[in-house]
Simulated scan of single mutants.
Amino acid sequence: MWSSHRFAGLWLTVVSFCEAIFFPIPPDVMLIPMSMSKPHLATRYAIYTTLASVLGGMIGYGIGFYAFEWVQQIIINWGYQTQFDKTMIWFEQWGILVVFLAGFSPIPYKIFTICAGVMQMFFFPFVLTATVSRFLRFYLVAKLSAWGGEKYAQKIRKSIEIIGWGVVFLGIIGYFLYQFFK
């Protein structure tokens, strides 16, 4: 089983880093089986995934900040233009809250990292918020996978998406409540 391979942690880190910049497959596809096969290492895997994802997010931010015109054609060619446009609107409306929600949402994380750079969001709050939200997501995935094992693997994959959209929904409600009572 590949999830037990001696370089599995390294590959998880590489995939997590690349996914935050350009890679189309989320690290969950590796994190889940690795956490199931070695439950005692689930937290460590979540930390690896988080750190690599945040580092990749920093690169994505830099691309958006310094080289967006170069990347714009790639966004169009990969079919992310609609998601990118929505994300830009969200950034304009909600600012840093979008980065937190991005850590949980099923929308590709790379879109958010590049948009944060395009919007020239303050870098330190971006990194801090990304670290917290990504860790919470990956820790939840890793621990649920370790706890549920193979028997619950498919349910966990579906639940993470539901939880992700639930967090986005709660964030939107929170924003509107904040605006209403402001």
Rank of each mutant, 00 (worst) to 15 (best):
M1W: 10
S3I: 01
S3W: 00
H5W: 12
R6L: 15
R6D: 14
F7A: 15
F7G: 13
G9E: 04
W11C: 08
W11N: 11
L12K: 06
V14A: 14
S16C: 02
C18Y: 10
C18P: 03
P24R: 13
P24C: 14
I25P: 13
P26H: 10
P26G: 08
P27I: 07
V29A: 10
M30P: 04
I32Q: 00
I32T: 07
P33V: 04
S35T: 06
M36W: 01
M36H: 05
K38S: 14
K38N: 10
L41R: 15
A42V: 07
R44E: 02
Y45W: 08
Y45F: 01
A46T: 05
I47Q: 06
Y48P: 01
L51C: 13
A52E: 03
V54I: 07
V54H: 02
L55P: 03
G57Q: 02
M58Y: 07
M58A: 09
Y61A: 14
G62K: 08
I63C: 02
G64A: 10
F68V: 11
E69H: 15
W70Y: 12
W70Q: 12
V71F: 13
V71T: 07
Q72Y: 02
Q72T: 09
I74V: 06
I75T: 01
I76P: 03
I76R: 15
W78I: 15
Y80D: 13
Q81G: 13
Q81S: 12
T82C: 11
K86M: 08
W90T: 02
E92A: 13
E92G: 14
E92M: 09
W94S: 09
G95V: 09
L97E: 05
F100E: 07
G103Q: 04
I107K: 09
I107D: 08
I107P: 08
Y109C: 10
Y109T: 14
I111T: 04
I111E: 10
I114F: 05
C115L: 03
C115A: 13
G117N: 00
M119D: 03
M119N: 07
F122R: 15
F122P: 15
F123L: 12
F124Y: 14
P125W: 04
P125G: 12
T131M: 10
S133A: 08
S133W: 02
S133H: 01
R134M: 07
L136D: 06
L136W: 01
R137C: 09
F138G: 01
F138S: 08
V141T: 05
A142W: 00
L144F: 09
S145F: 04
S145R: 04
S145Y: 05
W147T: 11
W147C: 12
G149Q: 04
K151V: 12
Y152H: 05
A153L: 10
Q154K: 09
K155S: 01
R157Q: 12
K158A: 11
K158Q: 12
S159E: 02
I162S: 01
I163L: 05
I163R: 07
G166P: 04
V167F: 02
F169A: 05
L170F: 10
G171A: 06
G171C: 00
I172M: 09
I172E: 03
Y175I: 00
Y175V: 06
F176T: 13
F176E: 11
Q179S: 13
F180R: 07
K182M: 15
K182L: 14
